[in-house]
Design a protein around this nucleic acid. Structure first.
Lengths: 366, 366
DNA sequence: AACCCGTGTGAGTCCGGTCTCATTCTAGGC
DNA sequence: GCCTAGAATGAGACCGGACTCACACGGGTT
């Protein structure tokens, strides 16, 4: 009883000693492998019980090479999108007997690189990454090289031969734009937090493939079909970082040819945009129509209820984790690229505009 | 090149060999301890670089006894409360150089027990637990005995001598009830997901100390001071599990002496209650007043804006992690019990009722 | 009686780091 | 020129499990 601090953990050796058998036998009885007589087994188990033996997972992982742990790297856990996806991942991993280590990148590339390295150094059995856009992805290559499976969530990295899970965006975005067009909106503003080197959006800006480019592509198709020019000048990148969302909203509603509809790229942006509109006294859908990506419980409870594009977020998490677990299980087949169907939920935040646009006088502040 | 699968990781031994020094010297150069000549150091570092050496954290943890990882056990990550607190925990741990393992219990005791054991077996340096209510807490005792620090979040376990971080609830709840009373509400319903053995709420039901009992205690004081009986019959437990939230809301608005105000114990309940009210055509605050715990961005954007009790959730996470890190750092002082101040944010969801209650004819369905 | 197989067992190695210990080398002090 | 403190170095123990190997023992063959 010489020490109450840092009381050592009991090890197989301790159990073996109490049970009067060799360490090897104790390990066999405890681990349930090899040949052990009933006599010895029960003695060992009893000893383990009295000593409150719990195996050291670190030691075990070290020579099995598997940690029964997967790593998840996301941009921002506080974002409902990620926390719900996380839940899907979590539930699936748990069912498969895997633990989860979570790392948050704050959408920062160097943090993501560190995160991936940390997970690799901790010898996770695999990882799910929602990569920061346009990352050179050498760090992800390192994972692939290490032989550990990776599944990319929400964003593809074309050069990387790994499984990906995304929500189908091109088609719903087409439908969403189609809907806006049908209601008479040709001047629709799009606000996204995506940011590429502080550049503004232009038609030939190469953003790679990510949810945002997919959406814009889908919307463009609808505009093209309708014979209307996609209002490129109303597509605003870098929301929340380079520009305040409130300012972006104001800007879209001011000027000679303002937006008659605003599309928010995710719920965080939607919330701030909505707050700004309310502050400025701009009514939805009378003064401006509103549409957001991501379906959250509150969207349908607003006045008016918000028209949204719902992605199967939880299911994306489940699918990603499922794929990962299959890979960990030894599946060596070709990389799979899953796109889960999204759908447009029509509510009341998009108004019908009477033909040739009549600019509304907005009460936008500042 | 006999194997492209499971390409072995480079170890100190590999680096040592390439640098033409002993394993011990390589380890010293890499780890930055002991005496190493500049000559050797640069050679080792160069070798490590070319071989892309990354230390195996498992091995390192095994004989240092510290994993630079903390475990977090929460009820439901999808709940904004936890995901925001998680963010606070995360940011703080990261700043301190610690990684985070997340485990979700789904508010289930046996899962919590498993979770705690898993974390202990993984040799986390400490853990933050938001314990399931009324747990016997022998599992938490095991952690304490192991010498690893624990910090309890959101709920206290009186028998456990560990640090706790909660939001101050008694005082704000007093203020909230006071406000309701001032506006003429004596029949206020309270809906909580807390559930203790499927029992209904009674005055002498011992629930221990948790946010919910604190709130009820605070509200009782206000009612007592006002000389009004706390409407115990309108306090509903087990929301979302034992009872559907919609049914609970309907029940509160039906009967001979219905509630004139509804208090939702958290944002998840609030959302479902609000949906039910909308479905039933009950207007806020004309037909019933509404007040919720937890401030979320959408609360102020609803029509009408919802009056809420805001807790410093992110700060709770930060505080909990801060305490834990201090303990890990060796702080052996007395357990600290921190209660962060909450505040009532008055908006427009509570209406004034004209003196002696005149039961409103509600449009509650079914 | 010699042989074989399978079960039960202990000794000891390995995983990949950290760290102790003993030894060698070198520079400074007298 | 000799002695010694301290730097530089290598060998090897150790953390706590998993697992290999060699060996003992008993029953069934032939």
């Amino acid at each position: 009883m010489e020490s109450s601090s840092t009381s050592r953990y009991t090890t197989v050796a301790d159990v073996a000693q109490l049970a009067q058998v060799s360490k090897a036998q104790a390990a066999r009885a405890l681990g349930g492998y090899g040949a052990v007589s009933d006599e010895v087994r029960s003695r060992v188990l009893a000893a383990a019980e009295t000593l409150q033996y719990h195996p050291n997972e670190l030691a075990r992982s070290m020579n099995t090479g598997r940690s029964k742990t997967i790593g998840v790297v996301v941009g921002d856990i506080e974002n409902p999108y990620f926390s719900l996806a996380m839940r899907g991942i979590y539930d699936t991993c748990k069912a498969g007997g895997f633990d989860v280590i979570l790392i948050n990148t704050g959408e920062d590339l160097s943090t993501e690189i560190d995160a991936v390295n940390v997970l690799l150094d901790k010898r996770v059995d695999g990882m799910i990454v929602a990569p920061v856009t346009r990352s050179p992805s050498t760090h992800l290559k390192r994972v692939v090289d290490s032989g550990r499976p990776v599944v990319l969530l929400d964003r593809k990295v074309p050069s990387l031969p790994v499984d990906t899970v995304v929500a189908e965006m091109r088609q719903v975005s087409y439908e969403a734009a189609r809907h806006l067009l049908d209601e008479g909106h040709t001047r629709v503003g799009y606000i996204s937090s995506l940011d590429v080197g502080g550049l503004d959006f232009t038609v030939d800006l190469d953003l790679g493939s990510n949810p945002v480019t997919e959406r814009i592509a889908g919307m463009r198709r609808a505009f093209d079909e309708g014979g209307v020019a996609l209002p490129v000048d109303l597509i605003r990148l870098g929301a929340g970082k380079r520009h305040s969302i409130g300012d972006l909203v104001d800007a879209l509603l001011t000027g000679p040819d303002p937006a008659t509809a605003i599309v928010a790229s995710d719920s965080v942006i939607a919330l701030e945009a909505l707050a700004e509109l309310q502050r400025a006294g701009v009514r939805i859908p009378d003064d401006v129509s509103f549409l957001m990506f991501d379906e959250l419980p509150w969207a349908g409870l607003m006045t008016p209820p918000i028209t949204v594009v719902a992605q199967p977020v939880y299911d994306q998490g489940v699918a990603a984790a499922g794929m990962l677990l299959r890979r960990i299980g030894g599946d060596r087949s070709e990389p799979e690229h899953l796109a889960l169907p999204s759908r447009l939920i029509l509510r009341e935040s998009v108004a019908t505009i009477d033909s040739p646009v009549d600019p509304v006088t907005t009460g936008a502040s500042t």
